[in-house]
Structures are given as C-alpha cells and as structure tokens.
C-alpha cells in the first residue's frame, strides 16, 4: 500500500475537466485507489468513481490524501500525484 498527501492548485478544484482527468487516470490501474479531502474532512471514496470524487468537494488549495493498494500501487500513486502537481496539464 502507498499513500501521499498533496494540495490541489487548480482554480476550479476537482471538478469538471480536472475531476475527469483524475478519474480517468485512476481507471488506468488495477490497484484499489481511494482518495479523501483532508481540508474539508470528507472520508475516503473510490477514486475511480467520478460521482464519488465530486462528492469530496475539493476546491482550490484543498489537500487530498490518496491511497493505492495493489500490484501497480506505486505507479498509480505516482501518476495521480504528478497529474495534480502539473496542474492537470494546464499552465
């Protein structure tokens, strides 16, 4: 199992395009992936579910905790954190 805490800097948070990209990325891996909103204190949800990720209400500057568990746990965690770090490919 691997986990990481990271701050979402995107101006709309995990909503619309960023939320889609996050869920699409999670779905590329076989590991179980969970994510929670530390800032708004919302408990873990399935990172592969767009609806549940939206219910986290992650806004700009919120911190999320991502947990991955499975054969590709480290790669999955790396992919998701770098997606957020690179601001979802926007400059």
């Amino acid at each position: 199992m691997a986990e990481a805490t990271i701050q979402v800097k995107h101006k709309i948070g995990l909503h619309a395009r960023p939320a889609s990209l996050f869920v699409q990325t999670a779905n590329k891996f076989s590991s179980k992936i969970k994510v929670r909103n530390l800032t708004a204190k919302v408990d873990f949800v399935d990172a592969k579910s767009i609806i549940m990720v939206l219910t986290l209400g992650v806004m700009k500057d919120h911190e999320v905790l991502i947990q991955t568990d499975g054969v590709d746990a480290d790669t999955a965690l790396g992919a998701l954190t770098s997606l957020i770090k690179n601001n979802f490919g926007e400059t």
């Binding site: 619309a16 395009r17 889609s20 869920v23 699409q24 949800v45 399935d46 592969k48 579910s49 767009i50 609806i51 549940m52």
Partner: peptide, 16 residues
C-alpha cells in the same frame, strides 16, 4: 459539448 462527455463517464461509474 463536454458535459455529454461527463455524462458518458457517469455511465461507467463504478459507484452507480
């Protein structure tokens, strides 16, 4: 149009 892309994603949502 992207809203209908989002709807397609919801179709394959594991929570649903």
């Amino acid at each position: 149009a992207s809203i209908f892309e989002a709807h397609q994603e919801m179709l394959s949502d594991p929570a649903l």
